[in-house]
Write a protein that binds this DNA or RNA. Structure first.
Lengths: 126, 126, 126, 126
DNA sequence: GTGGTCTAGACCACG
DNA sequence: GTGGTCTAGACCACG
């Protein structure tokens, strides 16, 4: 359910964090749902277990998941923390673009286009 | 006119690129305008001249400025390339956020809020 | 009477130890009182009996309870050992905080606040 | 200036975090002061650089330090975050002890004793 | 089996 | 030189 882009400049562990957060934000993963064991996910993604462990450690510190010794990691109570990973980056870029002179209309147009494309691809109302 | 945030995770040279692009996008710097010599800008910012030189090299590679040996660097013909530095990052984040389940309405709200704040601070119509 | 927090970083067996010690310190459990059979408590808490057995083993080793083969476990003669489980951890943290520069007044304030809150919730004079 | 207790149950990276936070809380390290390079501190402590890097990564995520590429790590603007590492653990233990029946007077006595001892050892008024 | 910690060693970007 | 990332492999506590 999570995909990694080794090409990109974003570190793998952050991509994993965003992947998990995305599943939570979309409602695929719900409170107290178990997320894949670090070693299992690492094998699926073809990467080192430590990298997944690092991602899980960050998610736990951020209060997005909690770990139970010997049992695994589980989705914590959802308080919008998972969404922040996406809205904060978006807001930051919006601020930069607006400050650089990109007009409000252009930003809105981009959002509309992205959402329209997403609706075609992903399907389903939102 | 350009400020550098050493705290941030964005490398200085990229901040310089965005700074120059912003001045162009806002119309402060126009076609064939001379941009500050690398050493001068470096001194102003209190950073290593090599870092500014690197930024200028990238801007030239991207066709945003052109350099004339012994004369300096100048703003190239504006074809929206400078804006792309901001709109591309913005679009990328919008795509990520929407794919992660952030609803269209939330994205629009964020844009509106950012623009409203910017209008208060920066002043002037756009 | 004992509750387990699977979320926390404290292992379950230690939480059980503290739970039993708390009941003794508060006087709910008195000398020679029988404590619940490991299997019974395990069922109540919904955890593995081995975990409870491990806790009881530690409490016995610490001289807080004693076990009679075929009869069960009982509260040993109270010599302040049960309280130590709490005062030692508290003293350790107090020492760390003071050494780190937290002023005496702040520590006192925290204690007063915690006790005030506890009095409201738990009720009863102490 | 930081010491590590390999014996203890507290992970080394957390001891390093507390060590740095303590220096900040005590005022030894001030805003924008540079903290030792990860590799240097690792060598001093006789441990692996990765362990120190982990600690620094956590401190940066917690907003206690900030890192500058190629320059090092520096103390961030002090907003009481460093102190929290100590007061939170202390308050948690105070709450546990009080709930377990340790009377307010005993807790106060412990604090007073710890502070009195610290004053003798460390010297200096606080 | 599970997560947590640590070591050893490598490579990278930045400056 | 500095921090950041990742791999490989090990050992541990918990249950």
């Amino acid at each position: 359910m999570i995909t990694i882009d080794v090409t990109g400049r974003a570190p793998m562990y952050e991509q994993i964090c965003r992947g998990i957060c995305g599943e939570i934000a979309k409602g695929v993963l719900k409170e107290n749902d178990r997320i894949p064991a670090a070693r299992v996910l690492a094998k699926e993604l073809g990467i080192n277990p430590n990298t997944v462990a690092k991602a899980y450690g960050i998610l736990e510190r951020d209060g997005i998941i909690y770990s139970v010794a010997g049992k695994g990691c589980f989705v914590a109570k959802h308080e919008g923390k998972a969404d922040k990973r996406f809205t904060e980056g978006f807001e930051q870029k919006a601020r930069e673009a607006y400050a650089a002179g990109v007009p409000r209309e252009t930003l809105i147009e981009i959002v509309e286009r992205v959402c329209a494309e997403g609706r075609q691809n992903g399907g389903g109302e939102r």
